[in-house]
Amino acid sequence: MSSEAHTSAEYIKHHLQNLTYGHLQNGTWGIAHTPEEAKAMGFWALNLDTVLMSLLLGTIIMFVFHRAAKSISTGTPSGLQNFCEWAIEFIDTSVRGSFTAKNDMIAPLALTIFFWVFAMNLMDLLPVDYVPMLMHELGVPFFKVVPSTDPNATFGMAIGVFLLVLYYSIKMKGLGGFAGELTLQPFGKWGMPVNLLLEGVNLIAKPISLALRLFGNMYAGEMIFILIALMGGAWAGATLGGATLYGSQILLSLGWAIFHILIVTLQAFIFMTLTVVYMDMAHQEHH
């Protein structure tokens, strides 16, 4: 627990609050020190922790891959090159499996999504209190270290994917073709409003499900880590019950973390695969 004075509810709230920078109510720009302040900032505010962490992780990944790409040799690959080649081939195979049209952007897109999301999710395995406590010592009130537990991050990426879907739908089928796809099926031209409703929902559901799936999984996982962390925090003294709780926290954290490795990887993979599938649908002439 970061502070003795917190109750369980405060502890949870504290851990789920982003470090938000925006226009404070007293008229100045600054960091929100309470969730209420953050809420009052409205849309034009930045979650500094999310932005910083995703930028940092993305940069590290791109730096590593770029280093491998720069020093690549066609001879026997070394360690880093080996890893990057494995990663590229893995992505390439996945993309070839579900993307049938020809577009040189899809594979790099998939690579970026998979490793970026994977790295963001992986932050979930850091002990829940370490980074917030460290930041507390440095005078930063909140710090949520897992960007993918912030809906802004997942929706941000999903919107990026959605824009690409729209762009390629129109590019491949033409504006008329895309409009036709939205309005002329499944019921023919007399059912146009119904068609538009159905296809519209279908279209909008893509980015929303993409974002909510990742956010939901990571948020729930983070929440469980926080709840497990609360058990040890309930240790008031060297009593038998306190010791049991403390031991349980260690065991449960371990178990959940091991299980979470699966979720971390799986969610990154799902986000990537769905993106590729949506892009494939955007490239296909319809039924």
Partner: peptide, 28 residues
């Protein structure tokens, strides 16, 4: 809260994809 982080994330996303597409994927 949904805020401008959303836009920042989309921009970062686009930049990383562009970088990957330009400097990472083709040489490897």
């Amino acid at each position: 809260n949904i805020n401008a982080t959303l836009l920042a994330q989309t921009i970062m996303f686009a930049l990383f994809v562009w970088f990957c597409m330009k400097f990472v994927w083709p040489p490897i």
